[in-house]
């Protein structure tokens, strides 16, 4: 009994109208993307200035995906994230003060300085954790979806991961489990073309990762990840399907990261023209050029948002910078027993 095996492509905005996106939603989308972008641009600069310790991966260029998904699901829905997780956290509503303090390793951080960039989580916001292990969060999202199904809560779980994750066994195990139990889970692949330095064209023999949905008899949808409208619509469809008990979907959002894999990446493996071309399809610019005029969002309105977000981020940086470090002995608490 086939549920839906074909791989489809979500139409891009150029070919559609915006009847389903009202003015308020337009503002929400823009503000969400602006928060995600500016947070990581700030992180990019702070890291370059040597202010932030540790491994940092920024989300710049991929905002259409986090913001497109998050404006299409509910506040109490679950997400799991990746090593490139700041964008997912910000888009889901995790407070930037706590996030920035976490990146600074301060006691006021969202994880009290114990997690850092790759382990930001806020269960109160349905954010079940960024994740330093590629594909590591896929079964966790499946578990959250199972929990929602068993509690009959109507929630969905969105699992973010990159193209590299789809070569891990646990990714395939997770899709299979979600499929056989019809779990309300949305697998969102952020295909930015590279797993660290290795191109998808080298690492797999399919052009579109969405075809991997076929093995699990679930919908696979190819989406332009630079187009927040396309991501938003594809997510809405997948979420409706999930909430109706029809099971999971796989969305492949094609995107490009503007910067390297990590902050400090020499990018020698990538043609510099790729980033130049990608910036021509900046999701914020595309929104301002194509979507905003069509739904009546004005330049002034966007400017107000820009200023508001800049202020929030400035305060977050100040909060991070001025917060105290944990005391060394804090290393020993938050496990069930001290050794």
């Amino acid at each position: 009994m086939d549920k839906m095996t074909e791989v489809t492509t979500e139409p891009q905005k150029e070919t559609t109208t915006f009847a389903d996106i009202d003015h308020a939603m337009g503002l929400r989308m823009y503000e969400n993307m602006r928060r995600v972008r500016d947070f990581d641009e700030a992180v990019h600069e702070l890291n370059a200035a040597g202010e932030l310790p540790g491994f940092v991966h920024v989300y710049v260029g991929e905002e259409g995906i986090a913001s497109g998904v998050m404006t299409a699901i509910n506040d109490d829905d679950y997400i799991t994230s990746t090593h490139r997780g700041h964008g997912h956290c910000v888009a889901k509503g995790v407070e930037m003060d706590g996030m920035m303090a976490e990146l600074y390793g301060r006691v006021t951080g969202i994880c009290k300085g114990k997690g850092g960039s790759m382990h930001i989580a806020d269960f109160s916001k349905g954010m079940l954790g960024a994740n330093g292990i590629v594909a590591g969060s896929t079964p966790i999202a499946v578990g959250a979806a199972l929990s929602a199904q068993m509690r009959n809560s109507g929630q969905v779980a969105v699992c973010f991961f990159g193209d590299g994750a789809t070569n891990e066994g646990i990714f395939h195990e997770s899709l299979n489990l979600a499929s056989i139990w019809d779990l309300p889970c949305i697998f969102v692949c952020e295909n930015n073309g590279y797993a660290q330095t290795t191109a998808t064209s080298y690492a797999m023999n399919v052009k579109d990762l969405a075809v991997r949905a076929k093995s699990y008899n679930i919908p696979g949808v190819i989406v332009d990840g630079q187009d927040i409208i396309a991501v938003h619509r594809a997510t809405k469809k997948a979420a409706e399907r999930a909430r109706e008990g029809k099971g999971p979907s796989l969305l492949e959002c094609k995107t490009t990261r503007f910067y390297g894999h990590f902050e400090g990446d020499n990018l020698k493996y990538r043609d510099p023209n790729e980033a130049i071309e990608a910036r021509k399809r900046d999701p914020l610019v595309l929104f301002a050029d194509n979507v905003a005029p069509a739904i009546g969002v004005t330049t002034d309105e966007m400017k107000v948002i820009d200023e508001k977000v800049a202020d929030v981020i400035k305060k977050a940086i100040e909060f991070g910078r001025s917060s105290p470090f944990p005391s060394p002995e804090d290393c020993l608490n938050d496990v069930y027993v001290n050794y």
């Binding site: 896929t138 079964p139 068993m150």
Partner: peptide
């Protein structure tokens, strides 16, 4: 095994 142990972790993190 990987999926069910991870699934249990996700369910545990979300109320079960």
């Amino acid at each position: 095994e990987g999926a069910i142990v991870g699934c249990a972790a996700g369910a545990a993190a979300s109320g079960m």
